[in-house]
Amino acid sequence: MGETAGATPRVLYCRCAYAQVVPGDVKDAVLDGLARSSVAFEMVPDLCEMAARRDGQLADIARAVDPARPLHIVACWPRAVRGLFHLADARLPDAGVEILNMRAETAADLLARVGLDVGSGTGATPPEAPA
């Protein structure tokens, strides 16, 4: 996975809406943290469901990855997320992508890793939606 520290991040959030495998309080708190910030982001209902449909949005996102402006995907296990993009014919490059895991990390840690302080209501360096 590409090292992304220091550059302006972009954010893709997965809601995991078709199952309860991501703790509800974590995904709600991450969504709330992003929504209360001043940053741009992209949110999808369920990367699994989109991969099954081979939704072209995944290919659009993968194509736009730029190591200079890292993409933070807030979803679940990185192996699974990479596999889903591959299944959708949208291979994520190694560099420029950081996958953050709502199954294993706290909302506060996840938000901090995309550059948002919980409770501050703003992003210090506004990240951008996947470009």
Partner: peptide, 25 residues
């Protein structure tokens, strides 16, 4: 955002200075 996602819609939030990406699909 929660209501749209929980009904199956993807949402992009656009703010001043936010980058754009190709939306071919």
């Amino acid at each position: 955002l929660a209501a749209l996602l929980d009904r199956g819609y993807a949402v992009t939030r656009a703010v001043p200075g936010g980058a754009r990406r190709e939306e071919a699909s």
